[in-house]
Design a protein around this nucleic acid. Sequence first.
DNA 1: TTTGATGT
Length: 308
Amino acid sequence: MIPKRVLHLAQLSVVGLAGYYIGLKDKIFENNENTVLLNGKTLKSMPALPIFGTVSAAVPYTDGGHVKDRVSQIMKYGFPGLDNVRSYDDFVLSYDRRNRVPNWVFEHITKEHIMKNDAVDRSKCDFTPDESIHPFFRSQNSDYKGSGFDRGHMAAAGNHRLAQKHVEQTFFLTNMAPQVGEGFNRHAWNRLEKHVRKLTKVYDNVYCCTGPLYLPRKESDGKMYIKYQVIGANTVAVPTHFYKVVVGEASDGSLDMEAYVMPNQKIPDETPVSSYMVPPETIEKAAGLLFFDKIHRSKLNRINGKKV
DNA sequence: TTTGATGT
């Protein structure tokens, strides 16, 4: 099953190259709509420039530097892409305006982030539209209602238990994508999220990038197509798959990487998460993103449990 | 336990 999926991903790279030039043109003519949400405050970035400077070096925002420090910490090993970046208190994401779901969501997780905390109550949280997104591109709760799909967290609520505010921010709809509930979000995908949390028992720091994929499939005419459902008045995309690329940083600074792709469908309970491991490169090609590109290869010990 | 939707 995995080799077939890898084949599909490999065939994507040709499409990806064609898309690159279009993307470049768009970048040049991009208007000044890029904004960054920092600690609930909306900032305007410089027009026609990548958002990177706004969230790393020259942040026109002061609160003692804590927000900037946290973003640098979460994004220590590089931004996968720079489209419509939003920085929340405990995670960072890039929003896909066309599909009304994230491109990627980045988290930095430690033991402390997932500890039991009586001050944090998930049941008090509400799914909330993010008004920093232009209304044309914003998803609403009504899009999901009656669709049959869950509002699935990309940054999991259970990874952000340091403060009530942190867990509440994971309920922004910018952090959601439509997921099959029974057998996927509530089961197999949840098991993968728990597996990532357990990595904090082994590693001091865990860096986790999560997002959707839209993978091509051969249709009945024998040709390859990317086909996905859209839901609601805002036509929110239902991804065909979801990925996680995870890096564990040991106390000596050495790094291990794991990468997973799971189909957005009911998955048998007995399926081990390890059976969804894929080479990280296949996700990068399919998503059009580069994960952890600031990591020195010499520091990377294992990928998917194998020495590199 | 954590992941959610739905009905009163």
